[in-house]
Design a protein around this nucleic acid. Structure first.
Lengths: 374, 374
DNA sequence: TTGAAAGCGTTACCAG
DNA sequence: CTGGTAACGCTTTCAA
């Protein structure tokens, strides 16, 4: 209650400026809008008055008349207890914030533990006129969310690859190709019995990486029915249990592909607990490459997902849409690098002091994954 | 250009609802506000119309007349290249988002690489009426920012301990006491030659933790002039170099207190490169306890800073201020736990599968740090 | 080149 | 209990 009482004392308005400059509010507005048909001399007078009064146009009033909030929503669709625990979302958010700011947009974030809440918050914010569009950070497989947003006319961009045939703006890395490349690397190292550990199966990213893994394995002659695969939540715990399960079911695996680095840390612990040495007994390769990967023991080889870039590009897409220049094609595939470290028995893929700054091809320790064909 | 063209097609307004219900807009507004002196029958009619039309009040118009945006700004004051790299800010943000949402506030985030930008963005957003208050995530030692915000009447809350005698709303852990306790723990383990590694000295948090370290060391009889201390940026690289420097200057240290876990990972590498075993040759204790600490090798003992909680409580403080209930006292000190792991030669402070879930006192491996006297 | 006036969608005061 | 009306601060016709 009493929310407006918070002492927002009478601020300077366009009228004050107009009065001081001896012109009408319309004129001040035109100067602000850099209307060319304003005489240089009045424009100067107005500018002086603006300076003198420290005038700042009220953005809310502007938004009301322009019917645009200049604000982009950023949905963090993760269980409340681990929302930003994922370095992935935090980095994407940073990219989004940077691009939004650079283009004169504001960024409003909200968390949505469930799909229903994500829908509700997105739509409500939009209906209330508080956001012009929204960035979604998760693509699920049977996802009605996107259709609901479309139905309301809410512009959005997705980080990830939405399924379905509707035109959608999205940015992603080529998860199928990247997982295939990572698996092929393990194959090239001589591994044949490779286990797969993934996050929950309802995410598109899980399916895509699984598919890439299978493609590589089948091309290498593995029987599709025998591929060991365990799934779990995107947590260390989830990785631990998945790895334990695989070791139990297939004690003879010599390599593990883990589609998340947080999970990989858990997998490392499971291997240690099972008395397997990494990389001597079991090689481990993971995805994402947050700082966790290089800090782990042994340091984890990883497919480095350009998380910041994904957030940045998604925001660019959305802004283009909002400004009436819908981009074509509406989606972007970002290339990913592979960083090779000790967990696959290779030389450290890092520059001596900082993790994660080596670019593709440097010192033979990172490898560019070819951008997938469309 | 053409920002408003983004197809926000004529939405339903309060007038449409009023017409459909056969009442005046004022009445609809009153129903929305749950004004008690509205007849049940009209209220019902109005509610029906609202249902039928899927009406959602325009938040921008509301904000304009109420002179309150219901939006809280969240300033991420870190160099652009590492804004959320710090798990610290990401967690605090998560806490802030949760509390804001629960109280009907929106959260607008912005990044500010420099102090000047932080001031500029905060003030501009406020002057434009886009935010009602702001959460600051960094307290610097000679900080004119807070005074500037005060001068403009911008309500704010700080995560960290601002210096200066002005009344300020802030939340922090007791860094002096926590650093003292951590140091005392090392002393208790028998260490006498302990090195200190901190972030940049202009941060209050650096000064406080340094002070706690010195207090403990001096009480233990160490000469204040001989305490080895190296500072660097909050990065792995920074930690590496600081540790290397200390080892060079004081080759005989047996323990290291590092005031940040990202830096501690770098310090671990420096120690490894110097051929020192952890914990046998050098024990390492750090702060924060993000997932990095438990994934490191060896797992790092750490003072666990309640990052989520800090963000949550700061937001609660600010909301109380915004709603006209300025809390007393205006600051909160949150207790911190100590998690003991292998880097100080102790048993793992973690439950077998998940890191960081043990509470104080459990299994003798975590220790409650007594809440400091005011 | 400039001003007056009509909105944008709400809320809130003042009558009745 | 309810309606009319005047704001809130700005932009944008329409006239001049």
């Amino acid at each position: 209650m009493n929310r407006q009482a918070a002492g927002r004392n009478m601020r300077i308005t366009i009228k004050d400026v107009a009065q001081m400059a001896g012109v009408s509010p319309s004129t001040v507005s035109r100067v602000l809008a850099k209307d060319p048909r304003i005489s240089p001399v009045t424009a100067e007078k107005v500018r002086q008055a603006i300076q003198a009064t420290h005038y700042h146009p009220n953005g809310i009033a502007r938004s009301l008349v322009r019917k645009a909030s200049l604000t982009i929503g950023f949905s963090v669709a993760q269980p409340a207890d681990q929302a930003f625990a994922s370095p992935f979302v935090a980095e994407a958010l940073r990219g989004a914030a940077t691009v939004a700011q650079r283009n004169g947009y504001y960024l409003m974030i909200f968390t949505a533990p469930t799909l229903a809440e994500e829908r509700h918050h997105s739509l409500t914010l939009y209906r209330e006129g508080r956001i012009d569009g929204v960035i979604l950070t998760t693509a699920r497989v049977h996802d009605t969310l996107l259709d609901d947003l479309r139905k309301e006319g809410l512009p959005f961009a997705v980080i990830g690859r939405p399924t379905g045939r509707q035109v959608t703006y999205w940015v992603n890395n080529d998860n199928v190709g990247d997982a295939k490349a990572a698996t092929e690397h393990l194959l090239r190292l001589g591994h044949r019995r490779i286990g797969l550990i993934t996050g929950p199966r309802q995410f598109v990213v899980t399916q895509d990486r699984t598919r890439g893994f299978r493609l590589a394995m089948e091309e290498a002659g593995a029987s599709p029915r025998l591929l060991p695969h365990a799934a779990g939540p995107f947590t260390e715990q989830g990785g631990y249990q998945a790895a334990a399960e695989i070791i139990r079911r297939q004690p003879d695996i010599t390599a593990l592909l883990v589609t998340d680095d947080v999970m990989a840390v858990g997998a490392l612990r499971a291997l240690a607990d099972a008395g397997r040495r990494v990389p001597e007994d079991v090689a481990v390769m993971c995805f994402n490459d947050s700082p966790l990967a290089s800090a782990a023991h042994p340091p984890l080889s990883a497919v480095r997902i350009p998380m910041y870039e994904l957030g940045a590009r998604a925001t660019e897409l959305l802004i283009a849409v909002l400004e009436g220049h819908p981009p074509w094609p509406g989606h972007i595939l970002l290339p990913a690098d592979m960083v090779l470290r000790a967990s696959t028995g290779e030389p450290a893929g890092d520059a001596p002091a900082t993790a994660g700054t080596v670019t593709a091809g440097a010192a033979g320790s990172t490898a560019k994954i070819p951008e997938a064909a469309r």
